[in-house]
């Protein structure tokens, strides 16, 4: 039996892949090219004319303190979201893996937040933490005496979007961690128990190292998510404010281009982001995938 499909018609295979190629070209390659091209121009506000300026958009960006601060914000935001969502998800997965009764119910509930649209997740946290009517803000003030006002306090605003973005990603990480935990043979844990390791030690010396392929995969996915996929949450919760305290790089692209109407700079910023994504992908494939083999 022949396992490979052989097309007799020369053009049919090309026709079959054409839709996918068209989608890629129109929605990915063309905009990317446009961004690259626009990043070399300065355009007037009304879009009547534009001048080719070589790398001026880039040099101005790197001289801009606000932009460099956004790099720092993005780093803090990205690492915090990744760490928070991954550690919470791992804790929940370990707990769910031990539950025998109603395990499916727990799993279903834990997966729900992933189905919530990012903007809705943002609004949800916006209402809960709202300084004047939010229930959580009220409880923080009542129980811990924390004066919560993310409209004024930039650090609190950053914390809010970090929590909202992390909460949204916990479900996704939970699913992968749970699958990873379930693929670890039970006899390994039992062997470690007989070898006199306490449950905590068993986790850190056996379970955690064996989860490392999952962990590294999620690390990259979560960083990419935090860097690029959290626009909606930030837009719905803090609008990047106060005073740009929650303006991560992706948000800056939007605010520079669509609010500030500076298309050249906005395009230059998206080119920088593009380079970042490519670099992260290379890191994932070249280093991490190779390193976690055991």
């Amino acid at each position: 039996m022949q396992k490979r499909v052989v097309f007799r018609n020369r053009w049919l295979p090309y026709l079959l892949v054409a839709p996918q190629i068209a989608v890629t070209l129109i929605f990915f390659i063309w905009p990317a090219y446009q961004a690259l091209e626009t990043s070399f121009f300065v355009e007037d506000v009304f879009g009547f004319s534009r001048n080719f300026v070589w790398f001026e958009n880039f040099t101005r960006l790197f001289a801009d303190k606000g932009y460099l601060r956004s790099f720092w914000t993005t780093l803090v935001f990205g690492l915090s979201v990744t760490f928070l969502s991954m550690s919470m998800a791992l804790a929940l997965a370990v707990a769910a893996n031990r539950v025998l009764k109603a395990a499916t119910a727990y799993r279903t509930f834990l997966i729900w937040p992933y189905a919530v649209a990012p903007a809705l997740a943002g609004v949800l946290w916006y209402f809960m933490m709202n300084p004047s009517l939010g229930i959580l803000a009220y409880m923080l003030e009542g129980t811990f005496g924390v004066d919560w006002n993310h409209y004024v306090n930039g650090n609190q605003a950053l914390l809010l979007v970090i929590i909202a973005a992390a909460w949204k990603q916990i479900s996704y990480n939970f699913l992968f961690f749970l699958a990873g935990l379930q693929s670890i043979p039970k006899s390994l844990i039992e062997a470690a128990a007989i070898d006199g390791a306490s449950p905590t030690r068993r986790f850190w010396t056996i379970v955690f190292p064996l989860l490392s392929p999952t962990t590294f995969f999620l690390l990259v996915v979560n960083l990419v998510y935090a860097f690029f996929d959290t626009f909606a949450i930030i837009h719905a919760t803090t609008n990047g404010g106060p005073a740009d305290a929650t303006s991560i790089l992706v948000y800056k692209v939007y605010s520079t281009g669509f609010v500030g109407q500076d298309y050249g700079s906005s395009a230059a910023q998206s080119v920088i982001l593009m380079v970042l994504v490519i670099a992260m992908t290379v890191v994932q494939f070249r280093f991490i995938e190779r390193k976690v083999q055991y």
């Binding site: 043979p185 390994l188 062997a191 128990a193 007989i194 070898d195 006199g196 390791a197």
Partner: peptide
């Protein structure tokens, strides 16, 4: 009594060696 405190050792069918 915990398995680790029973002064026993066990050899498993699938060996259960720590792969890492």
């Amino acid at each position: 009594v915990e398995p680790g405190d029973r002064n026993i050792a066990m050899v498993f069918q699938n060996y259960a060696l720590y792969p890492h």
